[in-house]
Amino acid sequence: MSVMRPELIMKSIIPVVMAGIIAIYGLVVAVLIANNISDKLPLYRIVLVHTSYFCLSGLAAGFAIGIVGDAGVRGTAQQPRLFVGMILILIFAEVLGLYGLIVALILSTK
């Protein structure tokens, strides 16, 4: 991007930032899991309930952001009008990870 269209470099960083937000969601869920570990709670429940819901949604969001970010940045370099569409798709992909975080928060309070 910096070679073809240097004026669009800052717009190209958005998918990277959104992928970093997914990592922050993972950190929050890891802290929740660490706080809920006790002798009374069986390990299979912790692993099954918390990580399965969040990891699947975080994994799906990460793949979607990676694929859309790669293709979207390349497409935006050729046609700048694609930027808005790329951002919308990235937002929908990010919401997948947010749903996983919300489910993990709900499950950790019960």
Rank of each mutant, 00 (worst) to 15 (best):
Y25H: 02
S52R: 13
N36E: 12
V47Q: 09
P42S: 01
N36P: 08
I46N: 03
G58H: 11
V29N: 01
V49Q: 12
V29E: 04
Y53E: 07
L43H: 14
N36C: 09
D39Y: 15
L48I: 04
I46F: 02
N36D: 10
Y25V: 00
I37P: 08
V49K: 10
A30I: 00
I33S: 12
I33G: 10
L56R: 07
S38T: 08
P42R: 00
Y44L: 07
Y25A: 01
V47N: 08
V49T: 06
R45V: 08
H50E: 09
I33A: 14
Y44S: 10
S38I: 02
G26K: 04
I33W: 10
L43M: 14
L41K: 09
Y53T: 06
Y25E: 00
G58L: 08
K40S: 06
S57R: 06
V49C: 06
R45N: 11
R45L: 12
V47S: 08
V49A: 08
G58K: 08
L27R: 09
V47P: 07
L56V: 02
D39L: 15
G26E: 01
A30S: 03
V31Q: 01
V29L: 05
K40M: 02
S38Y: 08
G58F: 09
L56P: 01
L27W: 12
C55R: 02
V47I: 06
A34K: 12
S52H: 13
R45A: 13
N36L: 10
C55L: 04
P42D: 04
L32G: 12
R45K: 14
